[in-house]
Design a protein around this nucleic acid. Structure first.
Length: 213
DNA sequence: ACATTAATTGTGT
DNA sequence: ACACAATTAATGT
């Protein structure tokens, strides 16, 4: 197991200046989570901004009825500046975040955010870039929901997932996929079957294998 | 190794 | 959407 310092240096060392790295090491908390662990639940009080050091997490929105919708993913070295933004206002989370693989996260206390924003140019750039990336991904998701049919969205979901986890195999049940896409299990099963007939994928229990990306 | 049960997936209405 | 059948994995004996 790598030390906290090494992990931080490895993922952020190139982007952030030395003195800031020292401060981060000093005031952050390192958290290690297993796969499918809920890091942030809706209504949680936001006292930390997470930076993903390794692994990846998905961010979902939930409606009043309790249906989920996948918004975007956050990979290693990335952060969710939006988490911070949407939570400064009312201090509770509007979204939930779940690990997609075993992941290590760095928890930055929110009170450090403003201090560092004023103090470090590299931090400002980092946060703004992250913010921009999240917004771009969010727009892509909005486009997908507004303009793509479910079968196209499903294919995009599978390829995104494969790219992110670096494997053609996707270990999800049809039910879990349906939840991410805010659809129903039967519909997903049928669409997947069609894709299998077209030769795009092969189906096994708890596992979908992409023929190609 | 076998039987039982639970979870997942497939299909017709 | 619902109901049910079929298949597969997990567990106990």
């Amino acid at each position: 197991m790598e030390t906290k310092e090494a992990l931080i240096q490895e993922s952020l060392g190139y982007i952030l200046e030395e003195s800031l790295i020292k401060e981060i090491i000093h005031s952050s908390q390192l958290k290690i989570y297993d796969v499918d662990h809920t890091i942030i639940q809706i209504g949680d009080e936001m006292r930390f901004m997470p930076i993903v050091l390794s692994g990846s997490i998905k961010v979902l929105r939930e409606n009043a009825a309790g249906d989920d919708l996948l918004l975007y993913y956050i990979e290693g070295g990335d952060t969710c500046a939006m988490t911070l933004q949407c939570c400064v206002k009312n201090a509770t989370s509007e979204i939930k975040a779940i690990t997609m693989e075993p992941s290590s996260l760095l928890m930055i206390p929110v009170e450090m955010m403003e201090t560092w924003m004023n103090k470090y140019a590299s931090w400002r750039t980092y946060i703004l870039q992250s913010y921009h990336m999240r917004l771009t991904e969010l727009m892509e998701t909005v486009d997908a929901i507004a303009f793509m049919k479910l079968d196209e969205r499903l294919l995009k979901y599978l390829t995104d997932q494969a790219k992110l986890l670096g494997s053609l195999e996707i270990h999800h049940t049809h039910q879990q996929i349906a939840e991410d896409l805010n659809s129903s299990r039967v519909v997903i099963s049928r669409l997947l079957k069609q894709m299998e007939i077209k030769g795009l994928i092969t189906l096994q229990r708890n596992k979908i294998v992409l023929s190609s990306i």
